[in-house]
Amino acid sequence: MFTRCLITAAVIALGLPAFAQDNPMRDGPTWGELQADVIGEVTPIAATGLFVAETPARAQDAATVPIRIIQSDPAMAVTKAIVVVDENPAPVAGTFSFGPQMLPLDFELRVRVNQYSNVRVLAETPNGLAMDGGYVKASGGCSAPATKDPEMAKVDMGQMKLRTFASLTHNRQEAQIMIRHPNYSGLQRDQLTQLFIPAHFLDKIEVAQGDEVLFTMEGGISISENPAFRFVYTDNGAPALTVTATDTEGNIWRNVLPKTGS
């Protein structure tokens, strides 16, 4: 135990990705069946030296599993990433595009994991499409009951909050965007009627800083309830971040969130 604590402390001190090192993906047939549908005939290269996708080996909550993408080489820009949960009913959790102010990339999201599964990130880099990820032990994330009654969830749907953190350098900032939305997967039951709640989720999100887009998302049912995205970006001096979100029911929300928010 003492040795393990020393190793963990060393990993933290050096800024090394402990999850990715200790938790590699496992061989299995599912990705072979999915690959052509997700990325076509491209064969991804290993992400070693380009980026790391950190995943927990065992999730504390299968409905909110954190995935963190960290660019390893500042010269190897990660401009787009596809997050895939192999064993989920809808494996592609989301496709993300990143603007120049997000680079070098440090980006975290939360996904649902329905059963023990590889969780992989396929990212576009100057060296081509690269892949990294881990094997997550979790189950029931896509059918886990929503935290609010459906009628109550409608009341604050679309509300947004920006959290800001201490500056990393003079112009690199860390922030978190949180959006209220049940993101129903279509696999959850109403706790009163026991009927399935129809799928209803955020399908597009854009976060901008002034006229410059930081990142966009095209999402599916594997993104967690009340989506939250934590990221590092270069501050261009704009006083606020603007978040635009749409869902599968045609709702559109647009909020201007001052950077002084906490």
Rank of each mutant, 00 (worst) to 15 (best):
M25R: 11
G237I: 07
A93W: 03
T248P: 03
L6A: 11
F229D: 00
N183R: 09
C142W: 12
P198M: 08
G220R: 13
A208R: 15
K137V: 15
V38R: 10
A53H: 05
L50D: 00
V65L: 04
Q194W: 13
N118S: 04
I12D: 13
P258R: 04
L34T: 05
G128V: 14
E54D: 15
A240E: 14
G250D: 04
R230F: 02
E249I: 01
M178P: 01
L109M: 11
P56G: 01
T30D: 14
L168M: 12
G40Y: 03
A46K: 06
R112M: 12
L109D: 00
E41C: 00
A36W: 02
I252C: 02
E108W: 02
D106K: 11
N171M: 00
D211Y: 01
T147D: 09
L192V: 04
F19D: 13
I82Y: 01
T48Y: 11
M152C: 07
V113T: 10
E108Y: 05
M76R: 15
V256C: 01
P126A: 14
G94T: 08
N226C: 02
A240R: 06
V38E: 12
S167Q: 09
S139P: 01
T55A: 14
A62W: 06
G128S: 05
V121Q: 01
L129A: 04
D149W: 11
L103R: 11
V136N: 06
Q101G: 02
E151W: 00
T43Q: 08
V92E: 14
E212M: 12
G261C: 08
E33F: 01
Q101K: 14
T125H: 07
G128D: 10
A199W: 05
V38I: 15
G261E: 15
T48F: 03
Y116Q: 15
T169A: 08
D132E: 10
L241R: 11
D37V: 03
F51K: 00
N23W: 00
M102K: 01
G15A: 07
G40N: 07
G40C: 08
I39W: 11
A199L: 03
D106A: 11
T234N: 15
L257E: 07
A62D: 05
M152R: 15
P56T: 07
M131F: 04
Q101T: 10
E108G: 07
E206H: 05
P66C: 13
P100H: 03
R172G: 03
G141S: 09
V119N: 09
E54M: 11
S167G: 08
P56A: 06
I45E: 12
A20F: 02
P145L: 10
P66V: 03
Y135T: 08
V83R: 01
F196K: 06
L195D: 13
A138D: 03
T169R: 05
A18K: 06
G49P: 08
A63M: 03
E124W: 06
P104Y: 06
A208T: 13
R172M: 14
I197C: 01
